[in-house]
Each structure stands twice: as structure tokens, then as C-alpha cells.
Write a protein that binds this DNA or RNA. Structure first.
Lengths: 120, 120
DNA sequence: CGCTTGACCTAAAGCGGCTTGAGGTCGGTA
DNA sequence: TACCGACCTCAAGCCGCTTTAGGTCAAGCG
């Protein structure tokens, strides 16, 4: 799999994928003799997870820590589980923000409609 | 109202509020003779809305545009309504991302649990 | 055959959205 | 009076990318 394929699949840009690798988020990506990156299915799956974590607000430092655990194999499953559960809580916070904002927008929009009726 | 009060109320940091003002997001904040900002209730409400929009991903450029409309008064209600409705769609996108991520995490966590059972 | 086009590569600079730091003014209090 | 804390400005720093500059190679075509 080439970098463009992974980009298409994960929704990350090609640049972002290179940046993530350079930042230690997806270490050990294989290279062909020509120096071109060759992603395994596992690499792609991993990046897909990263993309989802990042899109929902996990900081890079935590993703880096998570990647380091992942690289150390099965012994770290407990720690990884904890990291994901921490992120679940972040999701709940985001959800709350989203809901608050939805409410605010709904109220604002109703007020705008009321204004439009009074002076059309 | 002083800047620290607005910070407490909106959840924005004092620095961020100053930065927003400097960026044209909340123009015309009054100043005392001592040069200290004096926020009206309207200012605070406005910043609260901005905080919510920002926290849910509206780019500053769009907030700036929205602020400019707001500053021009009631004639721009239609445009402002459109802007908020655009943001509502962004909320839906975020919601979808959140849900996707939740699903992914749930699957991952189940897999981790399975692994822990096999080799405790 | 040579030439362009396009996908890949690196390294470095730029950008959006804050945060932090240096340096200064004021009012209150021990 | 000397210090503390809240305010101020301006500039630099930081995070998470994106863009730009400059280069290699393979495929396609006039």
C-alpha cells in the first residue's frame, strides 16, 4: 500500500501521514529499495485509529504515548485500555459541548425568526 | 464587568478574550479612563456565543465575518441566520465523527478484554 | 529518444489559534 | 513604604498541520 492509498482510506492528507510518522506516531513503516513507504494493512488500520482519535481531540502527546505502548506489544494492553477509556471521557465532554451549542443555536435561530416576523 | 468576570463566565481565558478583541471578534468594548476594559452584559453574552461556536469548531475567519454582520445591526439577520445554520451542519459532522469514534473504541476495548481473558 | 507529467521523497518555512513571558501602571493593604 | 494582585501591551513561543522549494524516478507520448 502506498501513502496515497492510506490517505484515501484514512482521510488524512499525505503530508499529515508523513508528519505523523516523523513524530513517532506510526513507527517502523517499511520502505522499498527506492525509499518509498510501503504500508501494511496493520499500518493502515493503526493510522485509521489515530485519525479517529485525533479528529475527536486527543492531543498528539497522548497519541505518541499510546503508540509507544502499542509498539511494546501485548504486555501493555492494560495501559492502552486505560488510555482509550480516558478518551471515551473526552468524547463525553465533546458531546456535552455539542449539545450545549445546539441548544444555543436553536434559541438564537428562533429569536432571529421572531425578529424577521416583526419587521419583514 | 471586568475581563476576569467574563473569563469566569465564558470559560475563555483572559488572554483569549484579549486576543479575540484584538482579532476583531468583539469590537467596541468600552474602556474606563484607566484604560481597563469594561464589558457590558451584551459583550459577555456575545463572547459566550463565540466561545461555544469556537469550541465546536467554527474557524476564526467565520467568527470574524459573523461579528462584522452583528456589528452592522438588524439588517444582517438573514445572513447571520445562514451562518448559524451552516454551523449546525458542522455540528452534525462532528456528531458523526464522535459516533464513529465511539464505535471504534468500543470494538477496540472489547478486543482488549478478550486478549486479557486468553492470557491473564 | 527526449520531454513532460505525476507520484513519491526531504527539509524548512508558514499559518491558525492560542499561551506565555517580559515589562509597566495602578489601587489596596500589612 | 513596599509589596501584592489585577489590569495593560507587545512579542515570542507552541501545537498541529499545510505549503513551498527542490530533487528522484517511472510511465506515457510526440
Amino acid at each position: 500500500m502506498k501513502i496515497s492509498d492510506v490517505a484515501a482510506r484514512t482521510g488524512l492528507s499525505v503530508s499529515t501521514i508523513r508528519y505523523y510518522e516523523a513524530s513517532g506516531l506510526c513507527p517502523h513503516v517499511a520502505r522499498g529499495a527506492d525509499g518509498v513507504r510501503r504500508f501494511s494493512k496493520t499500518d493502515a488500520d493503526w493510522l485509521e485509529l489515530l485519525a479517529s482519535l485525533r479528529a475527536t481531540g486527543m492531543p498528539m502527546a497522548q497519541m505518541r504515548a499510546f503508540a509507544a505502548l502499542y509498539a511494546q506489544g501485548d504486555a501493555t494492553v492494560g495501559a492502552r485500555k486505560a488510555a482509550l477509556m480516558t478518551h471515551q471521557r473526552r468524547l463525553d465532554d465533546r458531546q456535552a459541548e455539542l449539545d450545549r451549542c445546539r441548544g444555543l443555536l436553536a434559541r438564537k435561530l428562533r429569536r432571529y425568526d421572531a425578529m424577521a416576523q416583526v419587521q419583514p
